[in-house]
Write a protein that binds this DNA or RNA. Structure first.
Length: 475
RNA sequence: GCCCCUUUCGUCUAGUGGCCCAGGACACAGCCCUUUCAAGGCUGCGACAGGGGUUCGAAUCCCCUAAGGGGCGCCA
């Protein structure tokens, strides 16, 4: 069975890839990887007005950044293409023709004005606002005549008088009573298919086995079930995950600040952390575990354990989680990630050109970072000499004792061997002369050299700065 | 208005009739470690939406109410 798993992510290219869409994509991808099935990417660009090439490019870029590789879709092709809905029009027409021929769908000549009038009247009379089926009763002759006369028409599907039950993998049984729906449109008068119809046609054509998507599509499933039945095709298994909300508990949108995957990539978040966080937002394996590698998620993911209730996107927790992944990284992996950031931010900083020093620097600052971009501020805080940051710091270096300490230290530093043990001993020796130890010893030195009261390990800083620079700053 | 979904600490969640006067994580507060800040460790704060049932026993099952969300398009 597992080799038949075929899942898809079907975004519409009307904007950037946001975290909600990314999570849907991730759930699908994880399921495919877990089962050894196929993950298909399909671009739903039938809304010509709003779809843009730019959005498609961004979508693909962000998917790649997350590492959500697709087995069939744009750029890679596949046996069920094309993978852009705008290029699949014949397929929709073929399916629509099939339905009309079967008598499961019919042309409708009602104009939008007529329908609007009916809708308003129904509302006034407190009746349900569904299409009344006027054209359903048209004779074959009349239909043929009006089509031949070139009258504009849509295609509607005949909705059977029966209840539908969806057995959703995450929600359980969901039931719709007959008469909650009128005959709905599948083909517009322009000949363009409507969303609910495209989805079914495509999912059927691409032999999708499991439809994993967000809750906003739950009620659409009713129509889709009707369409599958009309087509005589067994529907796929459905799993509806709930929505991701902003801090104010409304559906996550641009108003909530950074919601695009691309933005997080730019802000220095790690792909692994992003995946970890998204996976745990609405899914867990039933344990206390929080930190997972992508590999581990691929092994453990299951559709059944997706949660039903909506979740708030907690930026603070993402940041924490990113820090966890970041600190777990071997320096060899972290280094190439922060190197370009540092060099770009401080092109004049020659120490960054020295591989040995650079490595020491990264080792030193790793523990202080939560996102990659933190590297710049942390490194800058001591690479560049600064005046005391505040009065407290200024007072610390201004005392007579401190002056004595710096003089002694400069002397010791200029003579000692410039290795950790060497300058460590030098600091102690200078401390003895100036009669300072502990905080009183280290703090003034730190402030004198960096200008601030806090930062990474002082000895590590000296290691990065080197003897000449340290002496220069002491004087 | 009609239909559908959801409801455990501020947030993410564990929990599928007794192990739960509810566990973990983020955030917050305090302490420890420490030359500072982080990181780490420990402690604290803090929740079963409300009301009825069922049951010896309910966060867990049923019903009602409320709140939130989604849908009811020739948008996707």
């Amino acid at each position: 069975m597992s080799e038949h798993v075929r899942v898809r992510f079907a975004p519409s290219p009307t904007g950037y890839l946001h975290v909600g869409g990314a999570r849907t994509a991730l759930f699908n991808w994880l399921y495919a990887r877990k089962t050894g099935g196929k993950f298909i990417l399909r671009i739903e660009d039938t809304d010509v007005e709003r779809s843009t090439q730019e959005a498609v490019d961004g979508l693909l870029r962000d998917m790649k950044w997350l590492g959500l590789t697709w087995d069939e879709g744009p750029e890679v092709g596949g046996p069920h293409g094309p993978y852009f809905q705008s290029q699949r029009l014949e397929i929709y027409h073929r399916y629509a023709r099939q339905l009309v021929e079967k008598g499961a769908a019919y042309p409708c000549f009602c104009s939008e004005e007529e329908l609007e009038a009916k809708r308003m009247k129904a509302e006034e009379e407190h009746r349900s606002v569904h299409y009344d089926g006027t054209c359903r009763r048209l004779s074959k002759e009349e239909v043929d005549r009006r089509i031949a006369a070139g009258e504009p028409h849509v295609i509607r599907v005949k909705v059977p008088e029966k209840d539908y039950i969806l057995d959703d993998l995450v929600r359980g049984k969901v039931e719709w009573k007959a008469e909650t729906l009128g005959d709905f449109i599948i083909l517009r008068s322009s000949g363009m298919p409507v969303y609910n119809f495209c989805v079914v046609a495509d999912d059927a054509d691409m032999q999708i086995s499991h439809v994993v998507r967000a809750e906003e599509h739950l009620t659409n499933t009713h129509r889709q079930l009707i369409l599958y039945e009309a087509l005589g095709i067994k529907p796929p298994v459905f799993a509806h995950a709930s929505l991701i909300l902003g801090e104010d508990k409304t559906k996550l949108s641009k108003r909530h600040g950074a919601t695009s995957v691309g933005q997080y990539a730019e802000d220095g978040f790690l792909r692994e952390a992003m995946i970890n966080f998204l996976a745990l937002l609405g899914w867990n394996e039933g344990t206390d575990r929080e930190i997972y590698s992508v590999e581990e998620l691929k092994e453990r993911f299951s559709l059944e354990r997706i949660s039903k209730s909506p979740g708030v996107f907690d930026h603070a927790k993402l940041t924490w989680m990113n820090g966890q992944h970041l600190r777990a990284l071997p320096v060899d992996q972290l280094l190439p990630m922060v190197e370009p950031l540092l060099k770009k931010a401080m092109p004049e900083e020659t120490r960054l050109q020295n591989p040995e020093i650079l490595r020491k620097l990264v080792e030193l600052i790793q523990i202080k970072m939560n996102v990659l971009n933190d590297a710049v501020d942390v490194a800058r805080s001591f690479l560049q000499a600064g005046e005391p940051e505040n009065e407290e710091a200024a007072a610390m270096v201004a005392t007579e004792k401190s002056q004595k300490l710096f003089a002694a230290l400069a002397d010791e530093f200029s003579r000692c061997e410039w290795v950790r043990d060497g300058y460590n001993a030098a600091i102690k020796a200078a401390g003895k002369i100036a009669e300072a130890k502990g905080k009183d010893l280290f703090m003034p030195i730190r402030v004198k050299i960096t200008g601030t009261c806090h930062g990474p390990d002082l000895v590590g800083i000296l290691d990065v700065l080197g003897r000449d620079e340290t002496l220069k700053r002491l004087k």
